[in-house]
Design a protein around this nucleic acid. Structure first.
Length: 363
DNA sequence: TTAGGGTTAG
């Protein structure tokens, strides 16, 4: 931009600034984005609503949601009014941090300010309310959405199905599915998976498998999440045989190979049953199948190894983490700190944190 | 040429 201005004598316009601010907000530094915003005013380029939205979104993405709201409020007093995009961004951000009251408040504020919401604003709010388990309010917003002439889409319906299932209101979930069919929005695998998850959580394997059949008859294949739910539920109910069967079916018949989460479910279950060798075998199996273990895989293992005080195996896995650049998270640290300090191996932990291997059998 | 992407498993 500097070269454009000085060498070509071209003045940057609002597009130039918006692109630049977006770049700084997304990957470098919000403060520079704000400085550029101030600079626009100094050089007489008027920011538009897109400039506002870029900054609001940037602040939200950097966890500065209240800062974003303050910035927005400050602008509203001046010449910049928000639009549906501004409100969607803020409502989504507040929903994500479970400040659902604030999200609803912003929605009301939008209506009061005369800014007309689009379908997206309704969708986000419904999704947020469903996640928060506020199904009455979600149903309410759904009615409003329809009243003003929008139509819920598949994602919006799925939020509702899931929300009702989580609240043990499965009849309501079925009502939504019925409504979807009537509205010509075909339930998809996500819709069925919500029902399957509900039955799994209640240990109702008969109905879970029935829902899976229903899903298949409707032309949807079970997904990695379908299998994950079922395998987890079978493990929790100590029906390891059935869990194993599904796990093996995944690679052979279903052509959906188990992923990291599927492995984690089984590894956790084996560790809980003190079958450490079985769990270690699965970690090797992951390697053989090219499935990458993440910190939670290691955490499950460390927990099991700690219970059984199998230090050498833990050192081996700590090295594997270093080798594969898998970063320990706070859970890893919690498990290892407690364990290694009681057995007088805190030195290993220090090396581990610094990214050095710990295993080479120190004297 | 610039802005918002929301639903599923551990």
């Amino acid at each position: 931009m500097d070269r454009m201005r000085s060498m070509k004598g071209l003045a940057p316009n609002v597009f130039t600034y918006n692109c630049l601010i977006d770049g700084f907000c997304n990957c470098v530094d919000i403060e520079i984005g704000k400085e550029l915003f101030d600079q626009m005013n100094e050089v007489g380029v008027s920011p538009n609503v897109i400039t506002l939205n870029i900054l609001v979104d940037g602040m939200c993405r950097h966890g500065r949601i209240n800062g974003a709201l303050n910035f927005f409020s400050g602008m509203q007093g001046n010449r910049l009014k928000g639009n549906a995009v501004t409100y969607t961004t803020l409502i989504t951000a507040y929903c994500d941090i479970d400040h659902i009251v604030k999200a609803v408040d912003l929605f009301d504020q939008m209506l009061a300010s005369g800014c007309s919401p689009d379908a997206s604003v309704y969708h986000r709010l419904i999704s947020g309310l469903c996640k928060a388990g506020r199904m009455d309010a979600a149903s309410n917003v759904l009615s409003k959405l329809k009243k003003v002439g929008f139509r819920p889409d598949i994602v919006c319906y799925n939020s509702l199905v899931r929300g009702f299932c989580k609240k043990n209101m499965v009849d309501k979930a079925y009502d939504i599915i019925k409504e979807m069919e009537e509205a010509g929005v075909k339930p998809n695998s996500v819709s069925y998976n919500s029902l399957i998850a509900y039955f799994c959580q209640n240990g109702n394997f008969g109905l879970a498998r029935e829902a899976m059949e229903w899903m298949i008859n409707e032309g949807h294949v079970p997904t990695i999440a379908t299998y994950g739910d079922l395998i987890h539920a079978y493990c929790s109910n100590e029906n390891i045989k059935e869990a194993m069967k599904l796990f093996n079916d995944m690679s052979s018949t279903s052509k959906i190979p188990p992923n990291t989460i599927t492995y984690n479910i089984r590894i956790e279950s084996l560790c809980n049953n003190n079958d450490i060798n079985g769990a270690l075998f699965l970690v090797d199996d992951m390697k053989a199948k090219g499935v990458k273990p993440y910190s939670d895989t290691y955490n499950a293992m460390f927990k099991g190894l700690k219970e059984n005080n199998l230090l050498e195996d833990a050192f081996r896995l700590m090295d594997a983490m270093i080798e594969h650049a898998c970063k320990p998270d706070y859970i890893t640290m919690e498990i290892l700190t407690g364990w290694l300090s009681t057995v007088g191996e805190s030195g290993k932990l220090t090396s581990f944190i610094q990214g050095y291997k710990v295993s080479p059998l120190s004297e």
